[in-house]
Design a protein around this nucleic acid. Structure first.
Length: 263
DNA sequence: CGTAGACCCTGGAAGC
DNA sequence: TGCTTCCAGGGTCTAC
């Protein structure tokens, strides 16, 4: 579900509520949410640890534990992390509860794709940090054989962009998702670079996009869904040129764009 | 190296 | 009304 702006919003709402708290007990109701580690070992490595930090890398949340270990969380499509009063009963889709004393952290995930790990895969640079430069983007565009949709979704190239923001970025840049990455001109590469930063920053400013399931740690929806220009708009008229927005499948994902003004 | 498709799941919407 | 089909914001694996 959540992409960079949603995970960033969750991080900001969650951090003041959990940093400094001690994980007194962990209950796992669905063992497969613990990835790459034996369940008993996972519980042992987490229990009794103070939460010292909360960071984001791409679409991952990084929970820094006393002693230096980092617990990573990926919410995939429908995962939620909710801070609730002590004793709140679990619901049908609550798969883990972290007892933090006065509050509990509930991991809730309808589709059961998300989970916890002590590993973090290799990811490209953060698009809103200094490491992501126009020069870097051009260096990656040039040899790539992917179309722009697949290029933006590749977490090893840039971390954190998902299906919604990829479509919105390409609209903002005036570029077709079908366009091959290596064919961009200097000017187009710069447009893409600026669109990536502008759209993601705007998404964060509006606290993410809530289309179906996304909420932050206080169960609040985002507001960026009201500002979408192409995602979910197939059949509607393009705000720039009045042509019909279409939907096609690219890179295995539903892709929305204006066939007239996205070149 | 690249991509296309299957897959992990549940549930809501749309089609018949 | 009820049954079926399609669709969903992600990432990983396999096959080619």
């Amino acid at each position: 579900m959540p992409e960079l702006p949603e995970v960033e919003t969750i991080k900001r709402s969650l951090a003041p509520k959990i940093i400094g708290k001690i994980i007194r007990e962990v209950k796992i109701y669905l063992p497969k949410i613990v990835k790459n580690t034996d369940l008993e070992e996972f519980i042992r490595r987490v229990t009794g640890k103070t939460i010292e930090s909360l960071n984001r890398r791409g679409k991952y949340l990084l929970i820094g534990l006393a002693g230096g270990e980092i617990l990573t969380v990926h919410l995939r499509m429908t995962g939620k992390l909710l801070v609730l009063p002590r004793g709140t009963p679990k619901d049908k889709h609550t798969h883990a509860i972290f007892d933090l004393g006065d509050v509990e952290l509930h991991f809730n995930d309808i589709r059961q794709f998300g989970g916890f790990s002590f590993d973090l895969p290799k990811l490209g640079p953060e698009p809103l940090e200094e490491a992501f430069t126009l020069t870097y983007l051009k260096e990656k565009l040039n040899p790539s054989k992917k179309n722009l949709k697949a290029f933006l979704l590749d977490q090893k190239i840039i971390a954190g962009i998902g299906n919604i923001y990829a479509d919105e970025i390409l609209f903002a840049a005036g570029l077709s998702p079908k366009r091959l990455a290596a064919t961009l001109t200097e000017v187009e590469a710069e447009k893409l670079y600026n669109a990536i930063r502008a759209v993601l920053n705007l998404g964060i400013k509006h606290r993410g996009t809530s289309i179906r399931d996304y909420v932050d740690s206080e169960n609040r929806q985002g507001g960026f869904q009201h500002l979408l220009k192409v995602y979910g708009k197939s059949g509607a008229l393009c705000i720039r040129c009045n042509s019909k927005i279409i939907r096609e499948r690219h890179a295995g994902r539903s892709t929305h764009f204006c066939p007239n003004c996205q070149k």
